[in-house]
Nucleic acid binder design. Sequence first.
RNA 1: GGGCCGUUAGCUCAAUGGUAGAGCAGUUGACUCUUAAUCAAUUGGUUCGGGGUUCGAGUCCCUGACGGCCCA
Length: 505
Amino acid sequence: MSDESQEQQQLDENKLIAERRRKLKELREAGQAFPNDFRRDSLAADLVALYQDYDAERLEQEAVPVRVAGRMMAKRVMGKASFVHIQDMSGRIQLFLRRDDLPEGVYQDFKGWDIGDIVGAEGVLMRTKTGELSVKCTQLRLLTKSLRPLPEKWHGISDQETRYRQRYVDLLVTEESRRTFILRSRIVQYIRTFLNARGFLEVETPMMHPIPGGATARPFQTHHNALDMPLYLRVAPELYLKRLVVGGFEKVYEINRNFRNEGVSTRHNPEFTMLEFYQAYADYHMLMDLTEELLRALAVEVVGSETISYQGETFDFGKPFTRVSVFDAILQHNPEITREELSDLESARRLCERLNIEIKDSYGLGKLQLEIFEKTTEHKLREPTFVIDYPVEVSPLARPKDDDPFLTDRFELMVGGREIANGFSELNDPEDQAERFRAQAREKAAGDEEAMHYDGDYIRALEYGLPPTAGEGIGIDRLVMLLTDSASIRDVLLFPAMRPEASKV
RNA sequence: GGGCCGUUAGCUCAAUGGUAGAGCAGUUGACUCUUAAUCAAUUGGUUCGGGGUUCGAGUCCCUGACGGCCCA
């Protein structure tokens, strides 16, 4: 943000903020307005859970002392007594304040504090007449003055744009949003635990690539000043991870960001998180088995059931996932398409024309089949389905099938009509890989900005010998969308990509 | 990139082309067990920006910005 627009942000003031600034000024005049010497000893939800079986009498007898802190989310003043809800990372707890329980003057000060202010409280646990666990306060301090009013307490923020742009406010007031991001963290945590338990080594490979590779996608380009060379933000970590398998790290994985310079939509963000893992002496069948096991366990871990509900649909991760080839899937879901017209270059071209698919002369039969699949079939695959046998033409890093060199040992996992994972037995024949790179380079020279570069060092690595290996990528954002029932990728990204805010001149 | 929809007080929302309102929040007062506390009074507006039509525009037209949904 430019200095100028930051200035404008500062001008985004109103009487409510002015009133709070006045209060802050008084705090400054009275001493340290931003103290950092209060220490809490308990979290709100922990206390509520721990003491759920204690009745009012028992709490009074035991007089459990606690120190809690958090943001004031509700404030009900009734003369010389008040109730406050504070919210911390764990949840909420009520404070019960009486003028005569607090040191001289504190209650009077408190009455001037605002919802959104951050306070620290000390007292003993009690249960109110209505049965709510509360802290009967003997000390109360304002720790941080909040200058901006929070959204309306009942409706919260309904404006999507504000929720995305000011996620800090969204997280404060939207329980659903908090839940989603906590689950996201648990999902990633679980995946790490799952892979670590199976002997995988977590690694970090470069995000800035001299030669972008590992996926057919447009990269972001940047420039390194000291080295005076172009660098690309990675579109995939694949080629580096396989170099590590060459180096003897036979089971590796990486969970981190990829960057693709493409459109923004409810399913695409320019930076997104990918899990990629590679296992030597394994093939794509083993990966499919592992993926089923992982998703089933994740559903139970996160949703509490092997059946998940997504945007009104139900998907069952408990039963074995369907496995069907690209070719058969097209035929099964499109009775009007025949085996013959799908098997011949010329008739496949005519089919594309009929389906309003834009094609180029350079497309071979494999690319045409994939285009037809994506247009006619992909969105129809709702229940978890492994689509297998992708054409070699559209799989430049995958191993050809032993019994059909037109196809590869590759699968994609579809759930709800969307690609969740992509895996294959790796192409470890350096001469074949070199030839495929050359074919990609020709595509690039012909104007395909998504085509791959020739990566000489990767070929060199393969020439040392990549053991027979299988590898897979799982889109974490889309997986989190599924498991948290989120309609848009922006709902599972803390700070989704947005255009700059309209200037408020 | 195309289509549709949206942008009004800090927030959530109203307002036949005819004086821009309500609830919450804020301010002042009352109230020592409340739960969206309650009661009384009260402050608060560049109606997203620019242009146009009109006696008169939040409302109609054009244009731009940002966002949402759908399609490619």
